[in-house]
Deep mutational scan, measured.
Amino acid sequence: MDEEYDVIVLGTGLTECILSGIMSVNGKKVLHMDRNPYYGGESSSITPLEELYKRFQLLEGPPESMGRGRDWNVDLIPKFLMANGQLVKMLLYTEVTRYLDFKVVEGSFVYKGGKIYKVPSTETEALASNLMGMFEKRRFRKFLVFVANFDENDPKTFEGVDPQTTSMRDVYRKFDLGQDVIDFTGHALALYRTDDYLDQPCLETVNRIKLYSESLARYGKSPYLYPLYGLGELPQGFARLSAIYGGTYMLNKPVDDIIMENGKVVGVKSEGEVARCKQLICDPSYIPDRVRKAGQVIRIICILSHPIKNTNDANSCQIIIPQNQVNRKSDIYVCMISYAHNVAAQGKYIAIASTTVETTDPEKEVEPALELLEPIDQKFVAISDLYEPIDDGCESQVFCSCSYDATTHFETTCNDIKDIYKRMAGTAFDFENMKRKQNDVFGEAEQ
């Protein structure tokens, strides 16, 4: 370990593993360490099931009705991949897709007046949907046509809207959309967690709705994908990429100290040895004095023996409960997957309800979601602090990732990755940087 590296990475969460992969592909010498004996950090999948019970201090362990412990891979952080989103792009560019198998999530649902409705995925579904009345549908269709044709580089498509100054509230007004449709559009399509976006320039919202539609167009059922064997497969896929390009991995490796000289990182000390480096990437748990708390998320993992009611017996789905429907500031989400994804025993389902904490009784906040899941065989409640770095790391060369937020997709995580890359490399992130180099010394032969 007593060696000189360009970059040392602490923690094998998804953000850290993707950055480690990119740095290795770009010719950097990388050492990647984790104090845990497993990959994934906060974003790991726990197996066998006995391990999950232990982690949540349920000492009696799983009953026999849960089947074989080894058949379970339970995500600690519930997220899906947008089919046309940035993480899929990263997987394709790096060819990490060859280590993973994905399934399309069967449906996306939205909560309205105590019931759940399928988010329409085709024009026919939209016309048949009970989510809105006849005239509302016509106006909504006009709005969707506007979004589909919108091109930020072609003012002819703006229809009198200025993407940089017109607020989204004004765009909704222009198409005369009612409150329910606005809730549905902002939260189930643009996937905002709160209503803060309404008074911001509309460009980002329009682009988010386009991303949803384009992702949906790829597979038809929903815009989301999920990897077989759980999300823990993602960091491992990128760790393989890093290793192929010469990255060194050490799990179960305690970090005793991060060594600084004149305010700059110069190395990491572990078990009496020092590895030197020019730059350091880590998750917040490794540098508690360089991060601040930015809120909390509650996630309740529920094991069920039945599909969720009114989802047409889907073996995977997402449910969004827009905040307006339950008098909150932030949406509540449910991600459900099952034995069909090799993450649970035969006939079992895993539904994870999550939201940003707003009160001193977080469990009560998630109740509307839990009511949709009854009866629940077993619950595991996790309340996590969200951390963000206190500075950009440019001076110390210590670059810290943000905690995983309450969103049900990876777009915010990818933004964090691109942002850290830019601060480390001094140049904007470009997907081309992730391409495997042809015929290089570490390149794998085609399968």
Rank of each mutant, 00 (worst) to 15 (best):
D2H: 04
E4F: 13
L14S: 13
S24T: 07
G27S: 12
K29D: 13
K29G: 02
L31P: 01
H32D: 14
M33G: 02
Y39S: 02
L58Y: 07
L58F: 05
L59V: 04
M66A: 01
D71C: 13
V74F: 06
D75H: 06
P78H: 00
P78S: 13
M82L: 12
G85R: 02
V88A: 11
L91R: 00
V96T: 09
Y99P: 00
D101V: 06
D101N: 12
K103T: 11
S108E: 15
Y117N: 01
K118N: 04
K137H: 08
R141L: 10
R141W: 10
K142R: 09
N153V: 09
F158S: 08
V161F: 09
D162I: 14
Q164G: 14
T165P: 03
R169Y: 14
D170G: 10
D170C: 14
D170H: 03
G178F: 14
G178D: 10
V181F: 03
I182N: 09
F184C: 06
T185N: 00
G186N: 15
D195N: 11
D195Y: 06
D196N: 09
Y212P: 05
L228S: 02
P235S: 10
F238C: 01
S242N: 02
Y245S: 07
D257I: 15
M260F: 15
M260T: 06
E261K: 10
E261G: 08
K264F: 05
V266A: 08
G267C: 05
K269M: 09
V274E: 06
K278V: 14
I281S: 03
D283G: 09
P288M: 15
R290C: 06
V291A: 10
G295F: 07
Q296C: 02
Q296K: 00
I298M: 02
I300V: 12
L304G: 15
N327A: 14
R328V: 01
S330T: 08
D331G: 07
I337G: 14
Y339R: 15
H341Q: 00
N342H: 06
A344P: 03
Q346P: 09
I350R: 04
S354C: 05
T355I: 04
V357L: 07
T359W: 07
T359P: 02
K364T: 11
L370T: 14
P375D: 02
S384F: 11
P389A: 08
V398G: 08
V398L: 06
S401A: 05
A406S: 02
T407S: 13
T408R: 09
T412Y: 01
C414R: 04
D416H: 13
K418H: 05
R423P: 00
R423S: 00
G426D: 12
T427S: 05
F431R: 14
N433V: 13
K435L: 13
E444L: 01
A445R: 12
A445E: 15
